[in-house]
C-alpha cells in the first residue's frame, strides 16, 4: 500500500463514522419523539376522545405499523425532502422551515464573518505575547465567557449596549430591514452575543495551537538565530499551526448550534431555533423532529469537518 494513500483512507473512515453516527442520532431523535411520549393519537385528540376515534386516527397516521418500519419510512422521507406535516397548523414542515432556515443561516454566517478574524487575531497575539498583561486579560475574559450561560452574555450585552449606552434596541427584532442602518440595528445584538460565545472558544483553541507550535525545537532555533518574536511566530510557527487553527475554527463554530437556540429565543429572532422552541411548547412532534435533525446534521458536519482538516493538514500522514 503506498503511504500517500493513508490520509485518504483515514478520511473515508472518518466519513463512514460520521454516517453511522448520523443514523444512530436520527434513531435517537425518532425514538425520543415518537416512542417515548406514548400514544401520539391520544395526545392529539385529548383526554375526552373516544377509543374508536383514537383507533381511527392511529390507523390514518400509520401508527399501527411496527416502529422499525415507521423509522425507515420517516428516514427515507427525510432524505427526499418530505418532512411531514405539522400537528398544530396542518402545514407542511418544509414550508414552515424554508424562510426560517435562511434567517438562521444568515445569522450564523454574519457571526462567523465577524468573529473569526477578531478571534484569530486575539488568539495569535495572546500566544505571541504569552504571559503578558494582554495575554492574562484575554485569558480571564475568555474563561469568564465560557463559564457563564449564553443567556447571561446576552443579558449583559443588552444591559451595556441598550440600557446604559442606549445605542441599540433592547429585545425587539425589527421586521423591516429595508435600510442598512435598520438591518445593522436588528442584527447587532444577536451577532454580538453569539460572537462572544463562539470567539471565546476560538481564542482559547487558537492560542493553545500556536503555543504548541512555538514550543517545537525548530521555532526555538529561529529565535536563537536572532529572529524577532513577531517574526518567529508569524513567519515560522504560524504556517505549521494553520491546520490546528482551522480545526479549532470548525470546532468553535459547532458552539453556534447550541448558542443559536438561546440567542434566537432571547432576541425573538425568526429562525429555526425559535421555531423549534415554540414547537416544544405546543408539542408539535414532526416539527421538532425536523428541526432537531437540521441541528444535528449541521453540528455533525462541523465536527467532521474539523476532524477532516486535522487529518489532511497533518504532513506526517502525507509522506
Amino acid at each position: 500500500m503506498p503511504k500517500s494513500l493513508l490520509p485518504w483512507i483515514l478520511v473515508t473512515q472518518r466519513l463512514g463514522i460520521a454516517l453511522l453516527t448520523l443514523v444512530i442520532v436520527s434513531f435517537a431523535v425518532f425514538f425520543a419523539t415518537e416512542l417515548l411520549p406514548g400514544d401520539v393519537a391520544q395526545i392529539l385528540l385529548g383526554q375526552a376522545a373516544t377509543p374508536e376515534a383514537v383507533a381511527g386516527l392511529r390507523t390514518a397516521m400509520g401508527l399501527d405499523e411496527p416502529a422499525m418500519q415507521r423509522f425507515v419510512g420517516w428516514l427515507v422521507g427525510l432524505a427526499g425532502g418530505d418532512m411531514g406535516t405539522s400537528y398544530v397548523n396542518k402545514m407542511a414542515v418544509a414550508d414552515l422551515m424554508g424562510g426560517r432556515l435562511v434567517n438562521s443561516l444568515r445569522l450564523a454566517g454574519v457571526t462567523t464573518l465577524v468573529s473569526v478574524p477578531i478571534a484569530l487575531t486575539l488568539g495569535i497575539c495572546a500566544a505571541m505575547w504569552k504571559g503578558s498583561l494582554f495575554d492574562r486579560t484575554v485569558s480571564i475574559l475568555t474563561i469568564s465567557v465560557i463559564s457563564v450561560p449564553e443567556f447571561m452574555v446576552a443579558t449583559l450585552a443588552v444591559l451595556i449596549f441598550a440600557v446604559w449606552l442606549g445605542w441599540l434596541p433592547a429585545l425587539a427584532y425589527g421586521a423591516n430591514v429595508d435600510s442598512w442602518s435598520a438591518m445593522l440595528r436588528a442584527y447587532a445584538m444577536p451577532v454580538i452575543t453569539l460572537g462572544f460565545v463562539v470567539s471565546a472558544q476560538m481564542i482559547r483553541m487558537t492560542r493553545a495551537a500556536v503555543i504548541e507550535t512555538i514550543n517545537t525545537p525548530y521555532v526555538e532555533m529561529a529565535l536563537l538565530k536572532g529572529a524577532s518574536r513577531r517574526r518567529m511566530v508569524l513567519g515560522h510557527a504560524l504556517p505549521n499551526a494553520l491546520g490546528p487553527i482551522a480545526n479549532a475554527v470548525a470546532l468553535s463554530l459547532s458552539y453556534l448550534v447550541g448558542g443559536v437556540i438561546i440567542v434566537e429565543t432571547i432576541f425573538n429572532y425568526p429562525g429555526v431555533a425559535k421555531l423549534m422552541v415554540d414547537a416544544v411548547s405546543t408539542r408539535d412532534l414532526p416539527l421538532i423532529q425536523s428541526c432537531a435533525m437540521i441541528f444535528c446534521v449541521s453540528y455533525l458536519s462541523l465536527i467532521t469537518l474539523a476532524d477532516l482538516i486535522a487529518i489532511l493538514s497533518n504532513p506526517r500522514l502525507r509522506r
Binding site: T21, V25, G258, C296
Partner: peptide, 9 residues
C-alpha cells in the same frame, strides 16, 4: 454517536 447531539438540543 450520542456525543454528536448538541446537549441543549
Amino acid at each position: 454517536a450520542f456525543n454528536g447531539i448538541p446537549s441543549l438540543l
